[in-house]
Write a protein that binds this DNA or RNA. Structure first.
Ligand SMILES: [Zn+2]
Ligand SMILES: [Zn+2]
Ligand SMILES: [Zn+2]
Ligand SMILES: [Zn+2]
Lengths: 147, 147
DNA sequence: TCCTTATTGATAATAATTATCATTATCAGT
DNA sequence: ACTGATAATGATAATTATTATCAATAAGGA
């Protein structure tokens, strides 16, 4: 069985930890494993509760500490939704947009290649703002939930 | 002096409260006044602390209760940002996007007339999702902060 | 003005996050 | 593989944000 995308992210994250002088500990591995194997953006509490399913699990403080570290290293990002805003998801290289199923929470990352530069230029002219970033996210129903 | 846009929103909100059988009380008026006169999206706590500047002010519980009511009536919405997600802002009629200054927090609402329907169709084909809504928000620097 | 009752304020309870510190375990150096 | 320095953990206390409770108050119709 070839290594999955998840395994690739996991080992890349461990390399990043090591190369920054951070230790790869069991609690950190557990949290990273949960994040990378999820199909939905999980909250810190959800990550903690998932970890309880194992026979050994990290303390809640270590979950938060790991998330803080992964965030500082730019490995994760927060996903915002109308119903809740602490969803954790691996950072994807380059500009992108996310697509979330309202029903089951399943997430997809859309590699961003849309052209809204014209729209942005118009907004800058209208408002006098200089725009340097944007969030574009889509909400809907995934194919599984459509059936 | 002609009535400002803020006064117009305020009296419209009071009408909405009355027409739904809710009383227009002093605490509610204070919270509504703070929200409608702000140039930035305020958190519940910020709204409460601003209210303390007056000689009489609502209890923190009434601030939350008022926000809950305004939200239920669709009069306010939450503004999400990388740094924090409980910003309260008056709802604007129709589809729109928001533009936030990273430096001072000043907000502008852009009446949404962008054309991303082609992009959405492409995403639906790629992913099998049905997309029914989206968030598009811009971050940058306002003209005041550019000087 | 009076009366009904929706709403408030004070505060307790709950929930989420952060701080503290003695103990544990990673991993570089042998 | 063993050892030691110390980064990191777990348990728990502290802090912060939000919600629930309930007797007292005040909005607004009669
Ligand atoms: Zn958010
Ligand atoms: Zn779904
Ligand atoms: Zn500004
Ligand atoms: Zn739009």
């Amino acid at each position: 069985m070839e290594p999955s995308a998840k395994d690739h992210i996991l080992s890349s994250w461990q390399d990043t930890l090591h190369s920054h002088g951070f230790r790869v500990t069991r609690p950190r591995q557990q949290v990273m494993e949960i994040i990378t194997s999820s199909t939905t953006a999980l909250t810190p509490q959800e990550i903690y509760h998932k970890s309880l399913e194992g026979e050994r699990f990290p303390g809640i403080a270590s979950v938060y500490r790991t998330l803080e570290l992964l965030d500082k290293l730019g490995l994760i990002q927060q996903i915002h939704q109308p119903g809740g805003c602490h969803g954790i998801w691996p950072t994807v290289e380059g500009h992108n947009h996310c697509l979330i199923c309202r029903n089951c929470g399943q997430m997809k990352i859309i590699e961003g290649n849309e052209d809204i530069t014209g729209y942005i230029a118009r907004i800058e002219n209208q408002t006098g703002y200089r725009v340097d970033d944007h969030w574009l996210q889509f909400f809907g129903t995934c194919s599984g939930c459509l059936d």
